[in-house]
Nucleic acid binder design. Structure first.
Lengths: 181, 181
DNA sequence: CGACACATGTAACACGTTACATGATTTG
DNA sequence: CAAATCATGTAACGTGTTACATGTGTCG
């Protein structure tokens, strides 16, 4: 549910060819989200099927435009408030949770590995930021998003590790792991 | 590519019925990721098709077990390092970028709305944390993940706003109110 | 008996993604 | 002319998700 609304949004300023949308989508996302042209057309088909876009055809070329229903839908999307029910399916989270489920030490291993990798990725991103002269606002924001997310992941991994370590009885004091603790 | 590997991971301790996997998946994820039973079976079919699991059938009941190839695959997944190429497709990001693309003021509107909503969500989560006695480690970690992610999103939205405001600032004398930017 | 958990599955559909095929027009 | 860009599409496949159908066993 992202490409869909993205294309819809790009039709707000005016009518466009499918091909144009690919280009504009990529430029709007700072050139980091490439889009296969084919996907644009299949997505436009689905949008048309759902009555969210329509087109005027001439000479085999189709000028797409957004419909009233499309504007409605797009508005809903834009103003839709994030919810945590159900919580978003996150891969890193599943990876760690499943590793813990297997056994605590494996959980710690995976946590350490991921943290190291994310840390490297962060440094790479920061170096890239210095090199880059800031091509576009979009590219810059995408960059920020990656960095902020990575930092959050690091923080979460730290929390995981701390909880795992505190849970696995500190020597001498705790006799048994607490159920439901 | 998440449920797939999740089920695979749950087969590490030993053989399981499909039905069991649903239960265990949900408990391993703190009871917040519900899984339709049907999905377990279709996913197991695909895993079997790919040679990652096999099963022994008796009386119409199938005991699944992970294969060598499955262990291999699972190991790859667990130790796979996150990459930013291509950067992950994030909905909030697209929402904001597309809003900005439409026009700056709409971008600011969406940013404000999202921030408010996420802020509320965060407070709700924190209240929930206090109420909850924390049933399981998994549930607790899921909770932390949601909180940390939400905080990251808030931070990113702040950055977006700042950049938008500084960008639309009077030409000629550009100030840089951004820390770390 | 009725409700519920255990156990298995199919059908249909959603979106995302890639590879491939076709042709017109522009440009070096 | 050749290559790149513009423009449109199809086919195939992947995962995720829901609704639905079926049957056994157990417990009150």
């Amino acid at each position: 549910m992202a490409v869909r609304e993205g294309l819809l949004a790009l039709l707000i300023p005016g009518e466009r060819y499918g091909y144009q949308l690919k280009t504009e989508f990529e430029s709007a996302t700072g050139g980091v989200w490439s889009l296969n042209v084919g996907q644009v057309y299949t997505t436009l088909d689905r949008l048309h099927r759902d009555g969210l876009v329509d087109f005027a055809e001439s000479d085999g070329q189709k000028l797409y435009h957004i419909t009233a229903a499309g504007r409605q839908e797009l508005g809903n999307w834009w103003h839709a408030l994030p919810s945590d029910d159900p919580p978003p399916r996150d891969e890193l989270m599943l990876k760690v949770l499943m590793a813990i489920e297997r056994d605590r030490s494996h959980g710690l291993t995976v946590i350490t590995e991921q943290r190291t990798a994310i840390h490297r990725l962060l440094q790479l991103q920061r170096r890239r930021r210095n090199d880059d002269g800031h091509s576009s606002v979009a590219a810059s924001l995408v960059h920020d998003s990656i960095v902020v997310r990575a930092e959050a992941d690091l923080r979460w991994l730290d929390i995981c590790e701390a909880k795992l370590l505190s849970e696995s009885a500190p020597a001498g004091r705790v006799a048994h792991p607490l159920p439901g603790g």
